[in-house]
Design a protein around this nucleic acid. Structure first.
Lengths: 118, 118
DNA sequence: GAGCCTAGTTCCCATTGGATACCATGCTCG
DNA sequence: CGAGCATGGTATCCAATGGGAACTAGGCTC
């Protein structure tokens, strides 16, 4: 059994490596979209929900909380009326957006090549 | 219902765009790992299973079949004894590996920045 | 015929995904 | 004063998925 410290070169292929969990966190439809939605600056819950067409509030909350938990997103509450809650990218989140944006763009650019995508 | 041609700029943020399905297919832990496992050439089922530490045969079959279905991977059966089945990347699969490799590498390079990843 | 090899399949259960409905706060309008 | 609306969620429920363990099938080899 490989311990974490021995996980050495941080191999996503190693089951015990924390990389696996991070990959699982990022390699996820809603995570990739949510992080992308914050690329242009902080956004409110409602705005993100509007951008991520088709997401339910529960799943959006789950997604954002999970990203927050792992230090990719920060959540700020403004006790105004009506209540305002803003989500924004942390520096780590900003950096994570680079490969994720690459993935999103690749999909958009290559969608026509997929067979029977109808 | 939005048709493909009307889906316009192929927006992954649009719920009805087939991009969404493709993103869901690729933005997945096992898909990203499986495609990466085939980057160096065709591999047998057993070899892939060995590489993707911790995956169960059922999930691997599901993953590979789904990738095959969408034209990213091709499956070839050699009716030898014992049976040999080789999986390899299609040209589309090869291209898809680029952004996915970027994601895997980013995770490996930045894992130390994640809080409490231990 | 026992056992092994590969490449799965089958069964079953726990977790997750997701839709819908509802809630709390506190304005603002009538 | 109560009705209604806005925001940012929960609560509830059900279906789909993820995933482990065990089993299968064809066909050598011992």
């Amino acid at each position: 059994m490989t311990t974490i410290s021995e996980c050495g070169p941080n191999d996503v292929y190693a089951a015990a490596c924390p990389c696996r969990d991070m990959l699982d966190l990022l390699a996820n439809k809603w995570s990739a979209l949510a992080l992308g939605a914050l690329e242009d600056g902080p956004r409110r819950f409602g705005a993100i929900k509007e951008r991520l067409q088709g997401i339910s509030p529960k799943v959006l909350t789950q997604t954002l909380r999970r990203l927050e938990e792992h230090g990719l997103v920060s959540r700020e509450i403004f006790p105004e009326v009506p209540l305002r809650v803003e989500y924004s990218l942390t520096p780590l989140g900003v950096d994570a957006c680079v490969p994720l944006a690459g993935l999103r763009l690749w999909v958009e650019d290559n969608i026509h090549r997929f067979p029977a995508s109808a």
